[in-house]
């Protein structure tokens, strides 16, 4: 736009001459607001209410066979291997995530051989950047297989869920949601929450408690439990979860 060069010059000059007051320091205010759970929009809440109602019916129907797998007991949500307490976390949240015990890297084929179950991959995310095997038994069989995507911002954990809870989570905003192909539904936690890992002896590792981002968890009839972490919205998490093959 050469015919406007002088006007453009004047506008740039004007930009420099406009006085903008000092901005307020936003650090504390933003942090305080992020520490509170995100408010749910009414539309979403209605949809969730419908999902919970549908699931309650499902649970009633399948309860005898699946009682050990999915329970809704007061404010305790449970998918095989994961227990979610719907309450506010006590104490402050850990700032720096720490890894699961005895973690080593592997490739997908090796992970599958070692784990003793089929290791699945969310197709939408492409091949994993890293495959991690954690907390092996004396024979070397890992309890948890983790696939890492997008520079570590997305984690996909999978493990045999017919065990006592491995992970304990405290998330006041945990909700049951419907997931196609998963009869018992999934649990969605929209805001970051503390995650505690319990090892083979049942000892809870408060030292390995880490702050998990928004997470979707579900299990299958083969009692393999999946945990997908790192997507800000439920829609996106569900889309990726449905691409798991």
């Amino acid at each position: 736009m050469p015919e406007h060069d002088d006007l453009i010059g004047e506008l740039r000059e004007l930009g420099r001459a406009l006085a903008v007051p000092q901005p307020v320091d936003q650090r504390n205010a933003v942090r305080a607001r992020l520490a509170r759970p995100a408010p749910h929009r009414p539309r979403v809440r209605l949809w969730l209410a419908a999902a919970v109602a549908a699931l309650t019916a499902t649970v009633t129907l399948v309860a005898p066979a699946r009682a050990a797998v999915v329970e809704v007991v007061g404010d305790l949500l449970r998918v095989a291997g994961i227990e979610v307490r719907r309450e506010h976390p006590r104490g402050s949240l850990p700032a720096n995530p720490s890894p699961l015990p005895s973690t080593r890297t592997a490739d997908l084929a090796e992970a599958e051989r070692a784990a003793g179950f089929r290791v699945l991959v969310p197709e939408l995310l492409g091949p994993p950047e890293e495959v991690l095997l954690a907390d092996p038994d004396p024979g070397g069989r890992p309890r948890v297989v983790t696939l890492v995507f997008r520079g570590g911002t997305v984690r996909f954990d999978q493990f045999a869920g017919n065990l006592s809870p491995l992970f304990r989570k405290t998330a006041p905003d945990a909700q049951w949601v419907e997931l196609a192909g998963v009869p018992d539904g999934a649990i969605w936690m929209a805001s970051p929450h503390p995650l505690t890992y319990a090892d083979r002896t049942g000892t809870e590792y408060t030292a390995t408690a880490r702050l998990a981002g928004p997470t979707l968890i579900w299990d299958t009839s083969e009692l393999i439990t999946y945990r997908l972490e790192g997507f800000a919205t439920l829609e996106e998490a569900v889309r990726v979860a449905q691409s798991v093959r």
Binding site: V20, P21, P23, R27, V30, T153, G213
Partner: peptide, 26 residues
């Protein structure tokens, strides 16, 4: 920050408060 690290997010808040404020004002 995406993994839930609020300290890391604070780095971004500090760095981008001024340009965000200037843009909002103008």
């Amino acid at each position: 920050a995406r993994a839930g690290d609020l300290d890391a997010y604070e780095v971004l808040v500090v760095r981008f408060t001024a340009p965000a404020h200037r843009a909002a004002t103008l």
